[in-house]
Design a protein around this nucleic acid. Structure first.
Length: 199
DNA sequence: GGTATGATTGACT
DNA sequence: GTCAATCATACCA
């Protein structure tokens, strides 16, 4: 809690203008923002950037049925099934059709804790949203959310109040372009999916 | 503390 | 058939 979000009172959701920029910049600036899905969510503490020229990105080999949302307008959700069992949530970035997106990997739970606990069948807040698959389960995200605008219900992405301390490191769970430091996290957060490597 | 494995879908060789 | 932006569980030290 190094920096309070503007969450509570009627803040307006970040929209297409925020997301229509360089994907790495957006990934970094999303740390500390608040994500809500139907009123359930919290502060984004971990993200990863995926670019069209990035061998680890789903968009690298061009559009397919699965990644269609990545090639649509920015400011929308891209949801895909991971390892056959989990859902992963991305925010589409850059110019429309560019094929870049930010993977949301972890939240600090703030709103709808009981709903998240019920969905995850778990009490411990620290593990409720610490990982892309866990996060989507806690927020009730499925393929039905693929392509939906992030500035409209059930989604809301509220701007952070100020610039929080941010750490960067290599992305997780990929084998290609694994050296790119395109994973961003809130420094010192206890809600990360995994710790960042020490400098 | 750590490493290994199964679940299960979609895209690609 | 193989691999993948994962997680929970099982086992070993």
């Amino acid at each position: 809690m190094p920096c309070a979000p503007q969450a509570a009172t009627g803040a307006v959701s970040l929209d297409e203008r925020f997301f229509a920029r360089d994907v790495v910049t957006v990934a970094r600036e999303l740390i500390g923002a608040t994500l809500l899905v139907a009123g359930v969510g919290g502060v984004i503490v971990e993200t990863e950037a995926y670019d069209r020229e990035d061998p680890a990105s789903h968009s690298f080999s061009g559009p397919t049925r699965r990644n269609a949302a990545m090639f649509g307008p920015p400011g929308r959700a891209y949801v895909y099934r991971s390892y056959g069992i989990h859902w992963c949530l991305n925010f589409v970035c850059g110019e429309a059709g560019h094929g870049s997106a930010v993977l949301v990997r972890a939240l600090e739970p703030r709103a709808g804790l009981d709903t998240m606990r019920a969905r995850r069948n778990l009490d411990e807040p620290r593990a409720l949203c610490a990982g892309p698959g866990r996060l989507t389960q806690a927020l009730g995200i499925t393929i039905a959310h693929d392509g939906l605008p992030l500035a409209e219900p059930p989604f809301a992405v509220l701007p952070r109040g100020c610039e929080p301390p941010i750490v960067a490191g290599p992305r997780i769970g990929i084998s290609k372009a694994a050296e790119l430091p395109w994973r961003f996290g809130l420094a010192g957060s206890r809600f990360l999916s995994r710790p960042f490597p020490k400098v």
